[in-house]
Write a protein that binds this DNA or RNA. Sequence first.
RNA 1: GCGGAAGUGGCGGAAUUGGCAGACGCGCAGGCCUCAGGAGCCUGUGAGACUUAGUCUCAUGGGGGUUCAAGUCCCCCCUUCCGCACCA
Length: 847
Amino acid sequence: MSDYDPQAIEAKWQKRWSDERAFEVSEDPDRPKYYCLVMFAYPSGHAHVGHVRNYMIGDVISRMKRMRGFNVLHPFGWDAFGLPAENAAIKNRTHPEAWTLDNIAHMKGQLERLGISYAWDREFATCESSYYKWNQWLFLKMFERDLAYRRRSTVNWCPSCTTVLANEQVIDGVCWRCSAAVQSRDLEQWFLRITRYADGLLDGMDRLGEWPAKVLTMQRNWVGRSEGARVRFAVPMHSGVSGEIEVFTTRIDTIFGATCVLLAPEHSLIDHLLTEGNPSEKLSQKIREFRALDRTDRMTGAVEKEGFATGLSCLNPFTGKLIPVWVANFVLAEYGTGAVMAVPAHDQRDFEFAKKYDLPIKVVVRPKAREGESIEEVPLDEAYTGPGSLVNSGEFTGLSTEDAANKLTQEAESRRVGQSTVQYRLKDWGISRQRYWGTPIPIIHCDACGLQPVPYEELPVELPKVVEFSGQGDSPLAQIEEFLNTTCPSCKGPARRETDTMDTFVDSSWYFYRYCDPSNDQQPFDPDTVGYWGPVDFYIGGVEHAILHLIYSRFFCRVFKDLGLVDHDEPFTRLLTQGMVLRNGAVMSKSKGNVVDPDQMIERYGADALRLYEMFVAPPEKEIEWTDSGLEGSFRFLTRVWRLVTGLCDLVVDLPEDALGRQFDDVHRALRRKTHESIKRVSADLDPRAHLNTAISALMELVNVVYGFCEKQDLVLHTSGEVRSSQLATIETRAVLREALEVLVLMLSPFAPHLCEELWERMGHTAGVGQQDWPTSDDSVAQADEIVIPVQVNGKLRGRLTVPADVSEEVLQEAALTEETVRAHTANKTILRVVVVKRKLVNIVVR
RNA sequence: GCGGAAGUGGCGGAAUUGGCAGACGCGCAGGCCUCAGGAGCCUGUGAGACUUAGUCUCAUGGGGGUUCAAGUCCCCCCUUCCGCACCA
């Protein structure tokens, strides 16, 4: 009866919460809202303690915020579309849906055993047609606004997943999911025009002060805005080819030093040269070689810089001189115009290239530091890329690089040979996936009418229940005649459905809005409802989504805003990226065999101990190494709490309400002080700092102090938790104990909710601990009457003084100078100075 | 290569603004209680020295500096992790 039995307690309270629908919420304009969200789960099969950590952080914050009077939305759901389900289906001859639903059922059970305070009635899975219907709806809205479009282009192809990937899903040249090397393919694909919002995504970051700086930096790099100019170089007829080459440059100020133009191997002029010109066999050969180079090796500089003269020349519009046109393997077709002007003297890559092929190097910028020098005579051993003033630049000579850039751009514009422009690294988001288990793209291909949107009233385009998954051939949907063949909504003639499905990141880009209004069948969500709950106040998830999911969601937020469905600018006000849980130094994974199963831990120590351990071991952002002994320690602490409270609860019930108004002696005052000090510390640690680990250590200190107090009061706690000499306890003792224990249980409850509900009930309360107000500290109680002041001599600690808290500086100084050890160090020395910092320390400077 | 973050006992980690370094926990050691302890409770636990109830010295990756005072601020270096990486 009196032993801490987490299994019994946890089952009891989980049932009660569920019966009472304790965490369901509705809009309440009279209370401040708080939307606390953890990234929803991919139903891979089993949750491990790494996932659990993410959910725990959200639960602690949610429970704490509820006690602080907020109307807290804390939902959960499933990112249920995706390849693993399809692969499992192929392997096990089952259906992706069956596999997915089984996994959801299992994982939901695991989460329920952790006692997380989710509003379960808002749960949904993205594979439900009631959800993905709105993906399709949104796609059509985007199609109407030219935000969704179809285009043939070179795309990332994962040979292992047999599908296309977005740029964001290629990490260091390999597939983000399966790590297979990504290949290039030329395909017709659907894209979402995220680039339209490039500047908005950048500007919005100014408002994301509560995001980790690291994530913002990553997003900024990803968008990769750079200002510069496009300049056209005319190509006079040569071997049957002429035209012009447009280059992108951020250094138009160096254009007088451009001694060569470099083309990407895929540049259209090269195509012309190959088809209409008569290139030498050697040149054709080189171009083929360059084009065959591994895409990512080329992008990352892993291949040596190489080039070959095309035989063509072009006219530098500013010098009026003809310069050679080369094809170079390091020029990227995807970026800018696929052509660059090479300025060897002021760009390190061009410098190396020029050295290698003996191209002229013409200095056009003189560094500030070398004003007046005749720099042309000094041989360069590297490019000078810094600012300075122009030389050898015609009428622009003498201008600063900054002024020159402006003037040259104006000049280029007025002469119609170029214009200023902004270039981004960000590319439109390719969302076509040649797979089955995803949202069908609601488009119909008609030979007569072209691309036709599926009419809104025909949504959703349901995913057909396919039986066979071979893993062979192209899109599985293309093999299903009943799905494929349809009629054109416009001409009613025979037509074919689009057979690609959407990237699952579409699903996750707006699910947080759907939670606000999960069963709306008229629109994705009601704008007023999202107006109440949104944006998400606190978002918790892994840093691996720093650019993927988080940038897509910010994009969708802007689209929804343009559609008039949301009124905020950013979807997630505060972001916390939690650290991973490692075992033996590695991320937990089935293949490594180092997965820690939460169910086993719950069975041995209970969910509360598991929760507490994962929150205590390190700050939430840090990765942690799993240790069983740490979990045992947390269990031991909870047992200590259990014994303390159950052992004393007879003493603390049935006390007069005004018991705390009495006069207390030093020992009692000390406990009260600790209690109120703890309220301050724990409150500040949780909100706003989210330092959950130090909040727990403050609670542990409080428990230690209460144990010490009991010992002083001769209240001997048995192992079994019974108090031996309860009859000796005075009203005063009981009053301060009650205060301490109530505060303890209240503040521990976000971490160990089951235990605390049970203890709270045993302390004689009828309403649940989660419905209580968060305790407030009384500064007059927290204030110590006496404080300990360290005394230093020449910065070294030499003694401590116990003085009244309100001691004057003069008295403090006097006391410090007469302290015994201090005097030993000041004897026979000259006191130069005494630094007195009020309530902090005294430092005596002697010589 | 460029940028960022970090480096504190045997271990995980504490230390708002520069103000007692090592909170809290793990581990370890001793004691109490026990038939027993791998339960519980109490105590100790950075290193070293000495004239060992105490006192002193050293100590926050290394080296300099600023300051009455530095884990915290500045400069240089080392290591680790993360991000970017031919973006013209």
